[in-house]
């Protein structure tokens, strides 16, 4: 029961200190959007992100635009006398093959990278969705109901976090043989990600729960469900959105790492990590083959990270820690 002092925050601008260009009646969301739009880094990374998403969504048509399907061999594009080296400079980049071809097989890299984007982003997004949904549900339940629910859920979070996740994922993926790889990868990656979200949400819920406006809702006669959906959930959504955006690059990296190690999606389905794994052997003879999927992976991770950073700055200035 501390008494906040008037005059305690001399530098805090008094109310009404919103920039003049903000129309009255702007919701916190509108203000956040306005703030985001002012940042050039946000605009650039958002463009890159949208480009990748678009690429993944339209992969079949976009890939067809180059005239090759991802699994189609083109023996004419490689030199059979030079151990299957692509013909032409820069890994066989030509009007025919926009990003060159794979050595030996002559498969079109553009088609493979575009289809790889689809697989990589699908897994990353699906895993993120699982993580965010379970994490938010568990976090809110633990934070709001407290007591025994909190004890059980918190233990479960600690336990899950004690698992050596990468090693465990590799192990699980390697023992499961005849299952849909994409579904399996999504669920395995999702399994180890939720405690992070849950902790952030739990902390946020705990602090919201003790806000006076939640008390006010209770005094007004609102039940638990009404308070959860109208007061708590909108309150945690800001940090969750920021955290989600920062989660995606991690998911993309994890998928790539698993596929790189050969326990992810199986050939001939392309994914970035798996393409890089195949190209490592050629890094000296055909560097473009190695560089192209790496650059795509790098750009995707970078753009999502930058976007997430900006979102976190604005939606969750104190870092979501309790």
């Amino acid at each position: 029961m501390t008494t906040t002092a008037p005059g305690a925050a001399p530098e805090a601008a008094p109310a009404g200190a919103q920039a003049k260009d903000v129309p009255p009646g702007s919701s916190p969301w509108q203000l956040a959007r306005r703030e985001l739009r002012r940042r050039p880094a946000v605009r650039v990374s958002l463009c890159v992100v949208l480009l990748f998403v678009l690429m993944a969504l339209t992969a079949p048509w976009l890939g067809a635009l180059g005239g090759w399907s991802p699994e189609e061999f083109d023996k004419a594009a490689v030199d059979p006398y030079l151990a299957g080296q692509p013909l032409g400079s820069f890994g066989g980049i030509s009007p025919e093959h926009w990003l060159g071809v794979e050595p030996v097989t002559g498969r079109d890299l553009f088609a493979r990278v575009v289809h790889g984007a689809q697989v990589s982003l699908l897994i990353a997004f699906a895993a993120t969705a699982i993580v965010v949904l379970t994490g938010t549900a568990a976090g809110i339940a633990a934070g709001y109901f407290g007591g025994r629910t909190d004890a059980v859920l918190s233990r479960l979070m600690d336990l899950t976090m004690s698992f050596p996740s990468l090693i465990f994922m590799i192990a699980m993926l390697s023992v499961a043989k005849d299952v849909n790889r994409i579904v399996l990868m999504t669920s395995v990656i999702g399994l180890f990600g939720w405690p992070g979200v849950a902790r952030v949400v739990r902390g946020q819920t705990l602090s919201l729960k003790h806000r006076e406006y939640v008390d006010a809702a209770r005094v007004g006669g609102s039940g638990a469900w009404r308070i959860l959906t109208r007061d708590i959930l909108p309150g945690v959504s800001g940090p969750v959105i920021a955290y989600t955006t920062l989660l995606i690059p991690g998911m993309i990296s994890t998928e790539a790492a698993l596929s790189y190690l050969g326990v992810g999606v199986r050939p001939p389905t392309p994914s970035w990590g798996q393409m890089i794994a195949e190209s490592v052997a050629f890094y000296e003879t055909d560097p473009m083959y190695f560089v192209i999927p790496s650059v795509f992976l790098f750009l995707a991770v970078l753009a999502f990270t930058l976007l997430g950073d900006a979102l976190r700055d604005i939606l969750d200035p104190r870092g979501g820690r309790s």
């Binding site: 790492a257 790189y260 890089i276 490592v280 790496s294 970078l302 990270t305 950073d309």
Partner: peptide
């Protein structure tokens, strides 16, 4: 941010190279 976005296998291969 850039360094964190580079996959470790890419950095490793580039270093070896």
């Amino acid at each position: 941010v850039a360094a964190a976005s580079l996959p470790v296998y890419f950095t490793s291969v580039m270093l070896i190279y």
